[in-house]
Amino acid sequence: MGRAQPSGEKAVSARDDILARIRARRPEGDFPLPTLPQFPGVMGDLLEVFTTNLAVMGGQCVHLPAGEPLGPFLRARLGRGRLIRSSTDELPEFSRTDDVASPGGLKDVHTGIVRARFGVAETGSVFLSDRELRVNTIAYLAQHLVVLLDPAAIIPGIADAYLRDDFTSANYVSLMTGPSATADIEGVLIRGAQGVRSLTVVFA
């Protein structure tokens, strides 16, 4: 690490040095780890709460009309002549996300379609891991993102989400809540800062 090895004695590694210093300077006193209580949390219909809260974060929700097949519905909605890639096997009519040589290969995608594992009503967030995304950058390089979500897979709160073992099922997990956003210029809210310009949840 750029440090000369002192000759004749064993150099203490930065790791051991830091850990030893921390142990030597440990704050005195008893600081028990609190048990986490269950707070009352989200009230009401989870689907409604999810929809309202996602709207606050700039996302929108669409219901698949009863009886209508998903593929044609999306095709009609997304229009033709645009590069659409899907990360879910249930939509064979679209190009596959993982049909690219590198994550940057998705840079020209107009709309990406993914299926979320679950949603969180408290914030309008969707859970997406590298398994659902297949190529993580689909959720960021595409101009627009369509997220399929089973209405039955909406859980009440963020705290509930972190009690699930889904987070340890993948190397990459993101709770996504609406599109990319920034307010870094004079506080003016702009959707589509670096990532997707819009995020639409389709309940299906």
Binding site: M57, P103, E122, N171, Y172, L175, M176, T177, G178, S180
Partner: peptide, 13 residues
């Protein structure tokens, strides 16, 4: 209520 992206990295791709 939350940042747009709350991301968890546990290992390399």
């Amino acid at each position: 209520p939350i940042t747009q992206y709350t991301s968890h990295f546990r290992g390399p791709r």
